[in-house]
Design a protein around this nucleic acid. Sequence first.
DNA 1: TTGATCGGAGATCATTATAGTCTCCGACTG
DNA 2: CAGTCGGAGACTATAATGATCTCCGATCAA
Lengths: 157, 157
Amino acid sequence: MLKISKKADYALMALQHIAAVQFGDVTPGRVVNTKEIAEEYNIPLELLAKVLQTLAKHALIESHNGPKGGYALARRAHQITIAQILECIEGPLGITDCSHEKDGEFCMQRENCHIRTPLLKVQDSIAQLLNNMTLQDMMGGTPLITIQSPTAQGVER
Amino acid sequence: MLKISKKADYALMALQHIAAVQFGDVTPGRVVNTKEIAEEYNIPLELLAKVLQTLAKHALIESHNGPKGGYALARRAHQITIAQILECIEGPLGITDCSHEKDGEFCMQRENCHIRTPLLKVQDSIAQLLNNMTLQDMMGGTPLITIQSPTAQGVER
DNA sequence: TTGATCGGAGATCATTATAGTCTCCGACTG
DNA sequence: CAGTCGGAGACTATAATGATCTCCGATCAA
């Protein structure tokens, strides 16, 4: 339960990868193309492409067309929150259907619903959690050692 | 995103209702049947029945067969956590597919995945949140005044 | 003791969300 | 100006969810 989608998962992996390349020691500043990420993490290429396009549309990353093109972070890793990433892909956080009811919209239970308020508090807590965690905080894990590079050894996988 | 299912929603409403009746001032100790809850909150009767059966199977509520039968809380409201309720209906909490991978199971991304650890931390935080909140904490809202009673006025709705 | 009222359980169906695919287009660089 | 990249739309398949239907057994009260 409370699962995030594969697409959101892919977005997190991709951003982590882009950040690792961009601010890493091997090829700092290099843009990363879709194919590289897809192969590195076994993500369906065209699905990942969609995800990255969405992230670009929301200005989390910048796209560069043409040969040697790809993506780069639009901001630094500590300025991109997990909440922002997830909301790009899955829309606004809402643990219930009624979380974002507009005026005049009411779920069938609204009339006598006594759990809406406490559930919104739960939602706020989760939102706070995700807003306080940034891409930077996800960079601590196993270092990215096998960055794809034509001249480096061990390229094939 | 991170939405809980309608069934889980219904479970929360039902348990809140049962608790309100059982420990309320009007008819303390009375068991509550499925139909009463379904009508009060406009929940499809048979779907709610499934939900309550599941809750009973997990020993959150006790069932009483026959006429004047229904459900009662198996424990007191402060001993039932939101996490327990949600897990009854939706299974164990897991924000990613790999959250509960058994030995030998690996998602396609696992090999190079750098986001698993931080995501598990997020998951733990959410779990902690839901484990520290009980049914009792959901009882503060608008008081339940229109308890269905054959002899009371204003029964029809 | 018998019938109406309750929960228990299984199969089934409809709808929606998700995951993944295919195709064509336009931009850029060398 | 050709090959490599992202942009965008339609499209399909599959799984999850929400909801319904049917039959059964337990219980209690008339």
